[in-house]
Design a binder for these strands. Structure first.
Lengths: 233, 233
DNA sequence: TAGATTGTTAATCGATTAACAATC
DNA sequence: TAGATTGTTAATCGATTAACAATC
């Protein structure tokens, strides 16, 4: 049994499902749906109703027996849980192709994530703007972040520049790094309060490749086994 | 006990670790390391040695007692498991900011993933090239994919265009969709052999936001509980 | 040979699902 | 009130870790 004051660590599996709940409730809200049961959500999201109730009860008791959940209330609660009720200041480090694409992505701002500065080393870019956001020299990054209370740094620099940038970031008030580089980021002990969220595109592509290839692979494995156990199916 | 001919389904948790093994072995290879034990790998990757041996034994017996694993051999085996030993033809659908960034990303080609065509509806783009890859009209997509035996479609179209594009793709020989749109892709029964790999950027950002916010959240939850159980820590 | 390290079985841990009393 | 649906405990399932005989 759980003790009253105990802080139960929420598992990553649950955390990864929160954005799905949030988006689903947002859609229901748009469609003027007022109440929703865990069973309704189950049908939409493909999770079991039981899992949905378990997930939500990590954070409080948002439902009502015999009624279900009020869509607006649950939506608001989850937005608070995800930290979407406050504005987030972001900087983007590395104004290459991917960096520029992200700087032009308006969806982030819609949800309260505002890119207020871009940093690069290329003198041809410094002083220019992308999507109305100014590009500064990385030299000025440390000062700027601390001065403007920036939350999140988006990392879109080349792999071999990553370590150096992270070193600078670890001297700032940055709380999270959204890492689009292929590098694995390690922060030393005194900075392990910086959260790193990786978007490892190559890993994602490799995973897709594996799954496309899986049937052929299983056949090959089976054939190999038949050599050892000739009478198997 | 497992039957000889049985096909054991490999769990997604294992699959997601395969690219990490692959990259790690690639690095060792570059550094001329010839052999490696599960314990060595454990230190580098942060998985337990036991887990590493379990993972690898999903696909065969690649090691040798008392010796460990031959780096080159294991690297080669995992590359085959991931399907990286064959070339993959890809098309990119949607030449917006993100699409253009991905078209310029050379890392994919390095690993045998070749973008051979880009499709868009914008007449100003059709006929032009990005990173030497021609942009065609989406009208020609179905024919092109089937004619050229394309494996993978990269989806970087606006959300509301996704369904229509997927409908067309489901009539082709496409094996996998690498989905960068916020849409959840559902393929009907006759096309459920198309594998979908999602890169949901907003979900990733929300997850980061949650984790940055977690400490504050736990405090708030604790405070709420104290109202009910006033004597808890 | 002795030491090292695998492949694999058994034990443990954690996450998901089922069940149901509480209650709106 | 009766039906519906929650929050929560218990059961199950699956993934990770530990242990160790086999063997290079």
């Amino acid at each position: 049994m759980e003790q009253p004051g105990e802080i139960k660590k929420v598992s990553m599996a649950v955390i990864k499902r929160l954005p799905k709940y949030y988006k689903c409730l947002g859609n229901l809200l748009k469609n003027n749906v007022e109440r929703v049961s865990s069973q309704d959500l189950s049908k939409i999201l493909g999770f079991t109703a039981s899992q949905i109730r378990q997930d939500l009860n990590n954070f409080g008791e948002f439902g009502q027996q015999g009624y279900g959940y009020n869509v607006l209330q649950l939506y608001t609660e989850i937005s608070k849980i995800l930290g979407l009720n406050t504005l987030h200041k972001m900087v983007l480090v590395g104004a290459g192709n991917l960096g520029q694409a992200l700087a032009n992505y308006s969806e982030f701002r819609t949800h309260g994530f505002d890119i207020i500065a871009i940093f690069d080393t290329n003198p041809n870019l410094i002083g220019r703007k992308i999507n109305n956001t100014p590009i500064y020299s990385v030299e000025d990054m440390e000062y700027f972040i601390n001065e403007n209370d920036v939350d999140i740094a988006i990392l879109t620099v080349p792999k071999d520049k990553t370590e150096k940038v992270v070193e600078v970031l670890s001297k700032t008030c940055i709380r999270g790094i959204w890492n689009f580089t292929p590098a694995e980021i390690t922060t030393d002990d005194d900075t392990d309060d910086i959260i790193v969220e990786n978007v490892h595109l190559i890993d994602s592509l490799f995973t897709l490749s594996y799954r496309i290839n899986e049937d052929k692979l299983q056949e090959r494995l089976l054939k190999q086994k038949r050599k050892i156990f000739p009478d198997c199916r």
